[in-house]
Structures are given as structure tokens and as C-alpha cells.
Simulated assay, not measured.
Amino acid sequence: MSEFAQYLREDMRLVILRVLATMPSYTANSSVLSSGLNHVGHNPSRDQVKTEIRWLEEQGLVTVEQAYDLLIARITERGADVAAARTVVPGVKKPGA
């Protein structure tokens, strides 16, 4: 994977966390997260969005439930700390960097 492709993945992960941090219930489905990524200039496939959500789950940054073909992600306390630049997790772009 190229350095730029890795940068884009890390930025998408940060965007997902930031979107979740702004949601009233800190929860959003993969479709809403896809729209949020499109809004800030990313254009991932639905499969890419789901892959990144699962990666964030593996890191303990979100919890995930499945509803039919959608993933429902909820940010964890650790994920909120990453979104707010209080914690750094390799693989997630540091806010402001």
C-alpha cells in the first residue's frame, strides 16, 4: 500500500470517529458514516466503510452491531479520546496533523 493510500485510510478512520463523536447518541450506521465521509471529500465504497468500522472495532475505538446489511457503530470512551486528540492510536490520523 502506498504511503498516500495509508494516509487516506488513517484520515477516513479519524473522520468516522469525529462523526460518531458529534451524533446525539454517539451512534451511526455505516450508510450515515459513508455520507459523512463523502461530505468531507472521501469517496469510499460501502465495503471500504465497513472494513474501516471493523478495524476501529478491533482497536477498541467503537462497538459494532449488525442490522441486516448495515453496521451500527458506537464510539467508545477511547475512541472519543482519539477524536479529540487526547490519545494517539497508530493507524488513525492524529487530529490537526
Rank of each mutant, 00 (worst) to 15 (best):
K94I: 15
S30F: 05
S25W: 11
E10C: 08
I75R: 04
L71C: 08
R74W: 00
V88R: 14
A97P: 06
R13E: 01
N29H: 12
G91A: 03
I16W: 04
A73M: 07
V49A: 02
E58C: 01
G91Y: 09
Y7E: 13
R13Q: 06
V64T: 12
V62S: 02
G60A: 04
N29P: 01
L14G: 01
G91W: 07
T22L: 04
S34N: 11
E57Y: 03
Y7N: 05
I72Y: 03
P44W: 12
E52K: 09
Y68G: 02
M1G: 15
R13H: 04
I72S: 02
I16H: 02
E57A: 11
V82W: 05
T63K: 11
L71W: 08
I75A: 14
S30E: 08
G91F: 08
A73E: 06
G36V: 12
P24V: 07
A97C: 09
A5P: 00
A83R: 07
Y68D: 14
A21Q: 10
A83K: 05
V92H: 10
R18H: 02
L61Y: 05
H42I: 10
V89A: 08
Y7I: 13
H39E: 14
S34K: 12
R13I: 07
E10A: 14
V19P: 00
S25T: 15
L37F: 07
L56H: 04
M23L: 09
T27F: 01
Q59A: 15
D11E: 14
D81T: 03
A67I: 12
D69Y: 14
L33F: 03
G96M: 11
L33G: 05
E57N: 07
A67W: 09
L20G: 11
T27Q: 13
G96D: 13
S2Y: 00
N38M: 14
R54C: 01
D69K: 12
T51F: 10
L14W: 09
V40R: 04
D69Q: 10
R13A: 06
N43L: 09
E58H: 02
N29W: 06
L70G: 00
V89K: 12
E3I: 14
V32M: 04
N38G: 12
G60P: 05
A80Q: 06
G41A: 12
H42C: 02
V19E: 08
W55D: 05
Q59W: 10
G91N: 05
G41T: 13
L56S: 00
S35C: 05
L8C: 10
R86F: 00
Q48S: 11
M23I: 02
T63W: 08
L61C: 06
S25I: 13
L33S: 03
F4V: 15
E52A: 00
T63I: 11
Q59D: 12
A97I: 13
A67V: 13
V89N: 04
L14M: 06
A67C: 01
S30P: 07
V62I: 03
R13P: 00
T22F: 01
D81C: 04
K94P: 00
A85Y: 08
V32K: 09
D69A: 08
N43F: 10
G79T: 11
R9F: 08
G96Q: 11
V64D: 00
L56Q: 02
L56K: 02
V15I: 13
K50S: 13
M23V: 04
L61Q: 08
S35P: 00
S25R: 15
